[in-house]
Design a binder for these strands. Structure first.
Lengths: 71, 71
DNA sequence: ACATTATGCAATATATATCTTGCATACAGA
DNA sequence: TCTGTATGCAAGATATATATTGCATAATGT
């Protein structure tokens, strides 16, 4: 499931996938896959992304696209 | 860095490490290491833990023990 | 038309999250 | 004292997050 919130927050900061990746210390592909969904990133990476985008974990990763949400 | 919030939330639910582990589908050791800190769990696991304990990501995993917090 | 930038997709390699098993300690109850 | 429960710690195995490389496409500017 795509993470639209993350993509929006990134675009709001006028950052490209590669720029965000550089800031948080991962590869462009990793950011791309997180935005594309079907991925399960690490807590530390999520936190770094949130800090880079001035958001919180709940802002970007809560109640949007975790498996079994509407079960 | 130890995750006290997680331990407190678990005890409030009267759950043992092993019981919580069974609920979220991991091993007792995994829960133990997350509580003990020096660990980097997966986002999906964090979400499952939050759901099991009726907490949010921010409640249990935000601004407590991520690296560089006070940098 | 050409070059550049941003993104998507995929295969292989590496790092690390998680599992499995086992042992040790502390504590509560019989 | 003995047994069961809850937890901590550690070594080796497995699954998967992430890196690396490469190619394809759309959009933009010259």
């Amino acid at each position: 499931m795509k993470n639209i919130k993350l993509k929006v927050a990134r675009v709001q900061k006028d950052l490209t996938q590669e720029e965000l990746a550089d800031i948080v210390g991962v590869t462009r592909q990793t950011i791309g896959m997180i935005e594309a969904g079907n991925y399960n990133p690490t807590l530390n990476l999520c936190i770094e992304i949130c800090k880079a985008l001035d958001k919180t974990l709940n802002d970007l990763f809560w109640e949007q696209d975790y498996p079994g949400k509407n079960a």
